[in-house]
Design a protein around this nucleic acid. Structure first.
Lengths: 238, 238, 238, 238
DNA sequence: TATGAATGAGGTTTCATTCAT
DNA sequence: CATGAATGAAACCTCATTCAT
């Protein structure tokens, strides 16, 4: 934001250092400087949030002069966007990291997915919250925010569809909508837990998320420990 | 925020007009003025968000002088808090509005609850989003934000516990944790839908939320239309 | 100019205090404040020029707070424009002040006009120079600059046309073009004299300007002191 | 200007690259580089003026690195000075180019002089305007500005004196003052024409300037077409 | 001598809040 | 109690100039 009141659309900075900013790949030293600024900015944003941080804080953290900032970034908005993009990218990589063992039960697979999400979320929780916040008044960020959702939801939807084909999951479900809803659950639970400070027990929470998930897709094993009364009833009536 | 750069810590307003603000209850005209300001502020916040609205916008909308604002409110923060509190209060009232018919099936009860939440959320979506946003940098607001959650979660938890007692819901579940997780789902789906602009089909979505909910608590009727394959398998094996 | 590098087109200041700035006539006190700021600005501009003066200088001169400036003016550009407009207006009034006595000779009339111009120019020389300078990079100012010219030129052209009708001035001249050219002479002589610091003798200069003027329009009295050789020759041949 | 806000007083450049700049004459390649920079600067100044051009623009136009600029010039001021000096030099050369044929009539000589001035002015109009502008806040430039005047005025004064000796021009005139005044006229007419954008007809304007000039010095031929009524009256009374 | 990145001073403008009528 | 003008802190961004390779 340029100045205290420039949320929303930031007019293109009037030329200026921009030439260099637009010049493609930099020298090695330049790359390092830019990375240093990104790191510094990430730390500053995590520490004091987006609105309260000033470019002055970032350059102080990076130990460079005020003007140096503008050699690499157009504005506070711009560097936040790069920070956010980087974090989101890392998150996506982490989410797609390992594939479930083919012999795993649906419960095991779901549990592993929950664990993976939670563990990817935790170290990035603060920045994700900031993306959420900044997204409120910066269109580009809103887009980025939705991207993470889509990535997770798509993957989950594909997983559900796959399980439907295998006869593991309820075939009557719309996999995408199911994934949307379950994704919202997982996503927001992480937010409440790690950003609003609600004190959850990790193991119990993971178990609960997993349970809801597999029950939702109708993949719960009949004799699995927390058996459902409806199920019991069905069994009983046998 | 008090001042262009005062997010986070709001210094105590330094005396002055304050005495007047503290001078007990207001006259009828005063009440009206205050209400007018609250209404104006709500409209302004809905229109341009919290950060981008200026006290000047609010007084213009309310057609009073700039100084008059401070006769009724300590700060921009303060009026937002009142707006938010009002909206949250209305939301809570709406949520608790009607009680389910005792003869309703679990599915019907859950569906009604989902519908109630969604319908209460929709007209307040913008302000709820702002509460979220402002909560990021204003402790009091964070508290308010959590309040809505708790209210919904508590109620849901009690409902689940009640259903457990009736033998409708899976007794092995922790009702509070279950409510937390399912509440997060419903809450966030509304946010994604109404604030991030994801285009959901209302009926399908409500059905999906309901389905996940009742499956999660193990209250799904055995022969209900979208029957789960696991369930069928269990039945088949009988 | 907003910032050290904003010559040329200054983007409209983003809303802001503008409402008040746009609100028509102000209270008496407001009017006074505005006038005080204009006076202060005039003094500052005269003292240190346009480019080197900062809004801070103006408010210091006017003994008001920095923010007060923006209650009345959009920018340094804007106040300069008002200062310039005021000065130009005064200049135009001064130029049109008194009409020549009907019995005056062409020489007397021309001399009086020269004197009037010079005397109107002198106290405003600095600001006129600044208008010239600022006009170089601010279109509105260029317009204002041309206005003064036009005013003087038009008047002169009418005078010449009148004298042509009276048979005093050379009927074959294009009065407008003549006035343009002679106007440029008078205008620029004042500039060179009062702004570039060329040390002219007032009386001799006025006499010279007058002489060129009346000779140009062919209104020189035959026996007037500095008689032209061409004329003498003509007389001699009589 | 040295720095974004340093109009008026330019502090001595603090050592550093300076030694290099002072190290005697340049190699051939150096000369070429310097000339390239001067050309580039001229183009940039003509295109966007002095205040709005940045050293970055100049080096970009010259396709050299930013630092290279300071190998050849002390400052932005300095290069402008060199550009201006070069342009003024060319202008002076052009003005003094050809001498009037000895058999020419005063009108022909004057007309040729006007034409020469106008034709020399036109291609340099923009830079001359900038000299005017920069001269407002840079003493060295003011000097240069006056130099062009003086050159033209001196020459004109000598011409008038010569014509006085020949009995062509009015002997009672102060040749220098006359030249000052007439020079101001020609100079400023060109400025108004070519820099303020006033739309003059070249031929008519030249004729008018010539006419004023020769009438002013009393060199108009008695029977030349646009004869003055005063003259006619004198003739008639013969 | 060329390069191109680093430096840092400096002015504008906003707007929440106060205060004199 | 209403008014509306006054206050002043604060942070962005530019770009001439320098300097290490």
């Amino acid at each position: 934001m340029s100045g205290p009141r420039n949320h929303g659309i930031s007019a293109a900075p009037s030329a200026g250092q921009q030439e260099r900013r637009e010049t493609g790949p930099l020298t090695g030293k330049g790359q390092a400087r830019k990375a240093a600024l990104l790191d510094a900015a990430t730390r500053v944003f995590e520490r004091i949030g987006f609105l309260d941080s000033r470019v002055a804080d970032i350059v102080a953290e990076a130990k460079v002069a005020q003007g140096t900032f503008y050699t690499y970034f157009d504005s506070k908005d711009a560097i936040f966007q790069e920070v956010a993009t980087r974090v989101v990218g890392e998150m996506l990589v982490a989410l797609h990291a390992d594939h479930p063992s083919p012999t795993a039960t649906p419960h095991e697979r779901a549990f592993a997915a929950m664990e993976r999400f939670v563990d990817s979320y935790r170290p990035r929780a603060r920045i994700i919250a900031l993306i959420e916040q900044v997204g409120t008044f910066t269109p580009e960020l809103k887009h980025l925010r939705l991207q993470v959702r889509e990535a997770f939801v798509d993957r989950a939807a594909r997983g559900i569809a796959h399980q439907q084909e295998l006869g593991i999951a309820d075939k009557s479900l719309d996999p995408v909508l199911t994934a949307e809803v379950l994704g919202a659950m997982v996503d927001h639970v992480c937010y409440v837990w790690m950003n609003l400070g609600k004190d959850f027990d990790r193991d119990k929470l993971l178990e609960m998320l997993t349970l809801v998930w597999i029950r939702a897709i109708g993949a719960e094993e009949p004799h699995e420990p927390p058996s459902s009364p409806a199920l019991s009833k069905a069994a009983r009536s046998a």
